[in-house]
Computed example of a mutant assay.
Amino acid sequence: MLGRRFLLPLLLAFGAVALPPARAARPMITDDARLVDAKSCQVESWVRSNRDNSTEFWALPSCNFTGNLELTLGGARTREAGRTQTTDVQAQAKTLLRRLETNGWGIGLAAGTIGHPDGRSRDFYGYVPASFSYRDDRIVLHTNVGALRVGEERRTHLTWGLATEAQLASNTWLIAEMFRQGEGAPFHQLGLRHWIVPNRLQVDATYGNRNGSAGEERWVSIGLRVLTPAFLP
């Protein structure tokens, strides 16, 4: 029975071709079929150090005003060669078609845009996140299938991602994923997520690289996620 339930998410993930630049709950790149709680907000922030000696500082605030529509607006500043500038400005909307339940599955829709002020270009993307819960939420699989329109290239790429959350302890999770953005080999990422205050304050750390790149495109990241109680009107 368990094997059959794993088959659908695997087919969804590997039957596609490539992943959009949107993010799920830190530290995953592959998005999940979940939203911030109704009338609540969160802020996801992280620092990513790249192999090329550049450092990215990200902050993505999100709010759920209606109960089934999560809006995100944020971006990144990047330090490279002694210069720091805004390199990404992201806006996204996300909704659910079916809510994820314990030992069940959920699916949603998301779309957004990322502007690159330094290069004066803009990308657009959309995707379908699907999540599958096993063993009373101790293992959750996430798949993404979508498309990314790269403004600078004037080309559209199919996108995909596959991620797993596995509970190691009461407040600690192991994150593993593989995803593809644009052309070239897929990327992989491995990390840990730990709740300092359950459902309110989370820290995480990851290591990632492109498959077969011998470490040339590797990165490490450290993140902080803060969630609020319901307070919006």
Results as ranks from 00 to 15, higher is better:
Phe14Ala: 04
Tyr207Ser: 05
Leu19Trp: 03
Leu141Arg: 04
Gly184Arg: 06
Phe231Val: 06
Asn171Trp: 11
Pro21Ile: 10
Gly146Trp: 09
His194Val: 10
Glu44Leu: 13
Asp136Leu: 13
Pro129Tyr: 02
Pro117Gln: 13
Leu12Pro: 00
Gln167Leu: 12
Asp37Leu: 13
Val43Gln: 08
Phe65Ser: 05
Val197Asn: 10
Gln189Cys: 11
Gly104Ser: 10
Thr156Ile: 15
Leu97Cys: 12
Leu192Glu: 04
Ile196Trp: 04
Gly223Lys: 00
Ala230Arg: 02
Leu7Thr: 01
Leu148Arg: 14
Leu97Ser: 12
Leu12Thr: 04
Val203Pro: 07
Ile107Leu: 14
Asn103Trp: 08
Pro233Ile: 06
Leu10Trp: 05
Gln181Thr: 08
Ala185His: 13
Gln202Ala: 06
Pro229Trp: 06
Ile139Val: 11
Leu19Arg: 02
Ser62Ile: 00
Leu141Gln: 07
Leu224Ala: 09
Gly215Leu: 03
Gly74Asn: 07
Gln92His: 05
Thr156Pro: 14
Asn211Lys: 09
Lys39Glu: 11
Arg120Leu: 14
Leu2Ser: 09
Ser131Pro: 12
Arg180Gly: 03
Ser121Ala: 15
Arg155Cys: 14
Asp204His: 01
Arg200Ala: 06
Ile222His: 07
Glu70Thr: 10
Thr206Lys: 00
Ala13Gln: 01
Gly3Thr: 06
Val140Glu: 03
His142Lys: 02
Thr143Gln: 06
Glu177Tyr: 03
Arg218Gln: 01
Pro27Tyr: 01
Val226Asp: 00
Thr113Arg: 08
Arg83Asn: 13
Ser54Trp: 04
Gly74His: 08
Gly75Ile: 07
Met1Glu: 13
Phe132Arg: 01
Ala214Leu: 10
Glu80Thr: 13
Asn103Phe: 09
Leu35Trp: 11
Gly191Lys: 00
Ala16Asn: 02
Arg98Ala: 14
Asn50Gly: 02
Gln189Lys: 11
Val203His: 09
Leu69Asp: 08
Thr102Gln: 14
Leu201Met: 08
Ala147Thr: 15
Arg218Tyr: 00
Ala230Asn: 03
Asp31Cys: 02
His157Ile: 13
Ser54Asp: 06
Glu56Pro: 02
Ser49Leu: 07
Ala81Thr: 08
Phe231Lys: 06
Ser49Tyr: 08
Leu19Pro: 00
Leu7His: 01
Gly184Met: 07
Met1Thr: 13
Leu158Ala: 15
Leu69Gln: 09
Ser40Glu: 10
Val140Leu: 06
Leu109Trp: 05
Arg122Glu: 15
Gly182Gln: 06
Gln42Ala: 12
Glu165Asn: 14
Gly82Met: 11
Arg98Val: 14
